[in-house]
Design a binder for these strands. Structure first.
Length: 829
RNA sequence: GCUGGAGUGGUGGAAUGGCUUACACGCCGGUCUCAAAAACCGGUGACCGCAAGGUCUUGUGGGUUCGACUCCCACCUCCAGCACCA
């Protein structure tokens, strides 16, 4: 495209205004000035190679909000940073030998340049980078605080283990149950690992969702289901022939008389002990081993066939003294409840399928009042409420009532207790990796695990390490790192070589932005309390559960240790949809990424921004089309010429004083558009419809100008108001062209220092309105009436309508429904 | 499998109980031009009809309602998350 082909000189003006905003420090904020604060936060990115237009959506939306709020007079804080620790950089280092720090910092440079090019502005003086010691020092400090309060602890947990590489694999590195590097089948290995006790906060994380009335309902529902609170009974079963008791949690104690077997997770601590000494011991142990080795991903993800093995042992059902067999099965998860269940095949579908497969008895204990149930003939479990049967003294009452009555009965007899269970599990933060914040713990032979004192932070991540092709953490082999002295007794000690999950880094970054350069504290409580909670948080729906839950947990923890005075971090949340290309999410591996750089060169940043916003509702996924970009570009050209035309004073308005219909229409449209765009921005971020509305105003302004040329006058002030309104309303979306046109309209100040326009209700009102006429719900005609027409008058004109007469002739009018200001529906027979 | 979403013209989408298809893309026709591009103007859901007009249409089937894209039930398809990708 040559210079002459451009619809307007975007490259020149974009560079000019980007420099202007930077020089004028438009986005720089003094956090000490917190009056009228507005904290606009976008989820900070992982510094992968380069940004594509899919990433851009997040930052563009954030930039629109920040600029709009500025124009509404808020003191806007919009910071940016980098979630820079993580697996991909480490994998790249193993492959290419480039140190993760080098590649991460390089990627940051590229991405920063891209953000600038997009016209997305931040207060860069507050930039945070999670992989640098001045940041991860405080991530380590958070660990120590949790440790001090007993909320960071160690326990055994399973990891994906590649027996050939002899290394731990992330779920992502396991492909179809095999190691992505060497394709060896992955098994499970038990390792001592660090956890954060997020389950202590389960109840509050759940109940406080109620406070978040400006969060999308679907995110709250997902979090609530993830926490998974359920009320039930924990039963103590005594094991026949062993002194141990087996605890089972059930939400369906009403079905206890129908329990025909017990099922344990293969990882259950009693699993081996139960098998010991029975005649099939060897077979059972082998089966347990096989099930344990099955990768967790397979067990959780695919609809795997339920496998099981009978241990040879029995428990006694306290309700009826029956002996019921204990099985071990892969469909039971150790992580939930007690890792053991009482199985009631007649009333639970999974138990039903298992019982069918292994020919275990099925006993109906809840009858469907509609039809009688016959165990032998059942095709599936009956899981609904019903009437108790085969349940001793509880027969005949409703199953719902039985839940309470049998629960009490069990408690009275000491057979169990009513309790609450959560699906939420403690947060496993240990990673057997290099590129993360080291866990600040040392192991001393005489003192055991000892916390690194605050004054010794940060525990530096050593940079001169060797990356092995196996993917093993180089930290283990860094003697300089591992060998240290015990901070308590001064004897020889070794460092913890696990690093922290990157979700820990991202669970508190929004606090650091307020006082990013403090060296003696993670953040300043006084200022953080003024600026938090974040007024608007913007990010991808894929973070709906983990990142948001972890951040809420850490915020509540800080509140409890009185480090802050608030207990929810994000007041309002917006989750944007993904940009799809050729039917799939944009990703380098799929080869369907669209780079913003080429598009910006061809059409300018404003066009790319406009198209990204116009593509569809921002909370939904959207398909990228290069053709669509053209349309946005043409629209900006049209706006450019709109201003050009009036400034060249080719257009002569006459101001004859008689207000034409065209003038009234344009004035109305102008005010309507202000109303529409403002509501779209204040409400649910309906950028696509806001832009459509501005397009309509531009179209109408063009029509008015054509009218003027053919002699139908529109007063200058009405025309100018329309044009200025177009430019102002567009400014948050397409800031460069808006600044330029604003200047060309003779204005001195930056457009982002101009107050957002307001509208005049009386200019929008109409004297005459059009009413739709339906007959039996079908549109048949329409009629123009005064806006304040009475119902009787309206009826009269509706029934007098020529078309309507044809439709109701020879029929009787049964009813006539009037929807004020909209329509009339005549019901005839 | 579990949890949460989505399904409307040739395409992206608009309308959240009241005119289905705003706005835009694409396509068709016109003006300008030696010609093209750009720009500007007009048309464009499907079917029947010369026309006036009519019938149908929001994934499928059913229901509620004077009236359903919108609410309820069942089903189909697609997408996201599922705790070590971030």
């Amino acid at each position: 495209m040559s210079e002459d082909d451009k619809l307007y000189p975007f490259d020149e003006i974009e560079k000019k205004w980007q420099k202007f905003w930077l020089d004028k420090k438009l986005f720089n904020v003094d956090t000490k000035n917190f009056n009228n604060k507005y904290y606009c936060l976008m989820m900070f990115p992982y510094p992968s190679a380069a940004l594509h237009v899919g990433h851009g959506r997040n930052y563009i939306i954030g930039d629109v909000v920040a600029r709009y709020k500025m124009m509404r007079g808020f003191n806007v804080l919009a910071p940016m940073g980098w979630d820079a620790f993580g697996l991909p950089a480490e994998n790249a280092a193993i492959k290419s030998g480039v140190h993760p720090k080098t590649s991460s910092l390089n990627n940051i440079k590229t991405m920063k340049r891209q953000l600038r090019q997009w016209g997305v502005e931040y207060d860069w003086s507050r930039e945070v980078t999670s992989c640098l010691p001045d940041y991860y020092k405080w991530t380590q400090w958070i660990f120590l605080k949790l440790y001090e309060k007993g909320l960071a602890y160690k326990k055994k947990a399973f990891v994906n283990w590649c027996p050939s590489c002899k290394t731990v694999l992330a779920n992502e590195q396991v492909v179809n149950g095999a190691c992505e590097r060497c394709e060896t089948e992955v098994n499970q290995k038990d390792l001592e690992q660090w956890f954060f006790k997020i389950t202590d906060y389960a109840e509050r994380l759940l109940s406080d969702l109620m406070k978040l009335d400006e969060w999308p309902q679907r995110v709250k529902t997902m979090q609530s289901n993830w926490i998974g609170r359920s009320v039930g009974v924990e039963i103590d079963f005594s094991i026949d022939g062993l002194p141990d008791t087996l605890k089972c949690f059930t939400t369906r104690i009403d079905t206890i008389y129908g329990a025909t077997f017990i099922a344990l997770a293969p990882e259950h601590p009693l699993a081996e002990k139960l098998a010991a000494g029975t005649k099939d011991e060897k077979t059972v142990l082998k089966a347990i081993g096989k099930m344990r080795n099955e990768s967790r991903i397979n067990r959780a993800k695919t609809d795997v066939e339920k496998e099981g093995v009978f241990t040879g042992r029995y428990v006694i059902n306290p309700a009826n003294n029956e002996k019921i067999p204990i099985w071990i099965s892969n469909y039971i998860l150790m992580e939930y409840g007690t890792g053991a269940i009482m199985a009631v095949p007649a009333h639970d579908q999974r138990d039903f399928e298992f019982a069918k497969k292994y020919k275990l008895p099925i006993r109906v204990v809840i009858d469907d009042p509609g039809q009688s149930l016959d165990a032998a003939g059942m095709k599936e479990a009956f899981v609904e409420e019903g009437v108790m049967a085969n349940s001793g003294k509880f027969n005949g009452i409703s199953s719902n009532e039985a839940i309470t009555r049998i629960g009490l009965f069990f408690e009275e007899n000491g057979w169990g207790k009513r309790t609450v269970q959560y699906k939420l599990r403690d947060w496993l933060i240990s990673r057997q990796r290099y590129w993360g914040a080291p866990i600040p713990i040392v192991y001393c032979e005489s003192c055991g695990p000892v916390a690194v004192p605050d004054k010794d932070l940060p525990v530096f991540l050593p940079e001169d390490v060797e990356f092995r092709p196996t993917g093993e953490s180089p930290l283990k082999y860094s003697e300089k790192f591992v060998n240290t002295i015990c901070p308590k007794c001064g004897k020889k000690a070794t460092r913890e070589t696990d690093t922290m999950d990157t979700f820990v880094d991202s669970s508190w970054y929004y606090l650091r932005y307020i006082t990013p350069h403090l060296t003696d504290k993670a953040f300043d409580r006084g200022l953080v309390d003024k600026w938090m909670p974040v007024d608007q948080y913007i990010g991808g729906i894929e973070h709906a559960i983990l990142h948001l839950l972890y951040s809420r947990f850490i915020t509540k923890f800080f509140h409890d240790i009185k480090a802050t005075g608030f207990d929810e971090p994000f007041k309002r949340l917006f989750t944007q949809g993904m940009i799809i290309k050729d039917g799939a999410k944009m990703s380098k591996s799929k080869g369907n990424v669209v780079s913003p750089d080429i598009l910006i060169e061809k059409y300018g940043a404003d066009t790319v921004r406009l198209y990204t916003l116009f593509i569809g509702p921002p909370e939904k996924d959207a398909e990228w089309s290069d053709r669509g970009v053209e349309g946005s570009y043409r629209f900006l050209g049209r706006v450019w010429r709109l201003v050009e035309k009036t400034q060249n004073s080719k257009l002569k308005t006459q101001n004859q004083g008689n207000i034409t219909k065209q003038a009234t229409d344009l004035k109305r449209k102008t005010h309507q558009t202000i109303k529409k765009v403002t509501e779209d921005l204040e409400g649910g971020f309906h950028f696509n419809t806001a832009i459509s509305a501005i397009m309509e105003l531009v179209n109408e302004t063009y029509e008015a100008m054509a009218g003027i040329e053919s002699g139908r006058d529109v007063p200058e002030d009405i025309l100018n108001h329309a044009i200025e309104t177009v430019v102002i309303l567009l400014s948050p979306f397409v800031p460069h062209i808006a600044e330029e046109l604003w200047q060309r309209l003779g204005k001195k100040n930056s457009i982002f220092r101009v107050e957002w326009p307001s509208y005049d209700k009386s200019a929008i009102a109409r004297d005459v309105i059009t009413i739709i006429i339906q007959v039996n719900g079908k549109v048949r005609s329409r009629v123009s009436v005064p806006f304040d027409v009475s119902d009787d008058k309206l009826k009269e004109s509706v029934l007098a309508d020529g078309k309507i007469k044809n439709f109701i002739e020879g029929k009787s009018v049964k009813d006539l429904i009037i929807v004020p200001g909209k329509l009339v529906n005549i019901v005839v027979k």
